[in-house]
């Protein structure tokens, strides 16, 4: 196992990002837990111009125009979110080239969580608070620097090219890392003990399809859309054409939220989710039922950002507990 001290780590970042962009947490802390904002904007821009019309240069997308991006300090949940959204934006019959090129040009430096937040529930998804895959390099904070592991060929090459910055990790350093890892996992298990595990939820939701428990959950929602904007696996977007002169326009893809009224409204004011309850429900069902059926996974990482950001203090874990209790009570 390799070790890198803090000064050398900064040197490494400078080298890796020499020809591109560097994303780091504002306080550049790689201990603790995830950042407030998700990292999804690095792959799917908040507002992405996808075409200028008419413009022959817009007919094709040149990979060279995209810069390399180094992401530093993505947590296990953050990395897992990329893996999930990849399934939608890259896999299948069509690929979103803007997303794909950004993902291809991304170098991810993951980081262990040395604490967890009160809203964190990655363990309920069966995940660990340290990255196990999906990273190029992963760092675990230990005193004076980081234990470093490579998780891809790109990561191995980065170490190889900068050999002089690393030394062999000492046994007590790896021991310390392992202790921290299991302490954080224990804490997560403890703080989330009362809540149902994610794997139970698809069946629970299917049983609660017409239950009025959803009205109770939706009652507090103020429709701000914070939960979807901050969710690392919410990928929905809207295409709109910004008019320029004459027939010219720029087509823009922008993040969108299924929680706002107009999202699914059709011509003639028809709206399949005109009721707030149906929109609130949609978020839970999309993530915990529909995407399981269509893309083979629950689209939630347990990062808890939706809990922290909710203006109405709705806690997804509590919602699930409520629904699950209701379904169980109904069965008895």
């Amino acid at each position: 196992m390799l070790f890198i001290d803090s000064t050398n780590f900064e040197r490494l970042l400078k080298k890796l990002s020499a020809d591109g962009e560097l994303y780091v947490p504002v306080l550049m802390r790689l201990d603790g837990f995830r950042t407030v904002d998700p990292w999804k904007g690095a792959a799917q821009m908040l507002r992405c111009p996808v075409a200028n019309y008419p413009d022959d240069k817009s007919r094709e997308i040149s990979e060279e125009k995209f810069r390399n991006v180094v992401i530093v300090g993505a947590r296990a949940c953050d990395i897992y979110a990329f893996e999930l959204v990849d399934r939608v934006e890259i896999e299948g019959e069509f690929t979103d080239p803007f997303y794909k090129v950004r993902r291809d040009k991304m170098f991810i430096i993951g980081a262990d969580c040395t604490e967890c937040g009160e809203s964190c529930f990655c363990n309920l998804l069966g995940n660990k608070p340290w990255p196990e895959k999906g990273y190029d390099l992963n760092v675990s904070s230990v005193s004076g620097g980081y234990i470093v592991e490579a998780g891809s060929d790109k990561g191995k090459a980065a170490i190889e090219a900068n050999k002089d910055l690393f030394s062999e990790a000492r046994d007590e350093q790896t021991k310390h890392r392992d202790e921290v890892r299991s302490a954080v996992l224990d804490k997560l298990e403890k703080q989330n003990r009362a809540f149902p595990r994610a794997e139970e939820m698809p069946d629970v939701l299917r049983a609660a399809l017409t239950d009025d428990v959803w009205d109770e959950i939706a009652a507090k929602c103020v429709e701000c859309g914070a939960c979807t904007n901050i969710c690392p696996t919410c990928y929905c977007f809207l295409l709109y054409d910004m008019k320029a002169d004459g027939e010219y326009f720029q087509r823009i893809s922008t993040w969108d939220s299924c929680q706002v009224t107009g999202y699914a409204r059709m011509a003639g004011m028809l709206n399949p989710r005109a009721r707030l309850t149906d929109r609130v429900k949609h978020r839970y069902y999309h993530k915990y039922d529909y995407l399981v059926k269509s893309h083979g996974a629950i689209f939630c990482t347990g990062c808890g950002r939706c809990i922290d950001s909710c203006s109405a203090t709705i806690d997804m874990r509590e919602s699930f507990k409520k629904v699950s209790d209701r379904v169980k009570a109904g069965k008895r």
Partner: peptide, 18 residues
Amino acid sequence: NRKMSCGMGKCGRCNVGP
């Protein structure tokens, strides 16, 4: 019939259940 935007299964808009 649902509101559509991308047409490619990416924008999330046009679902009927799953």
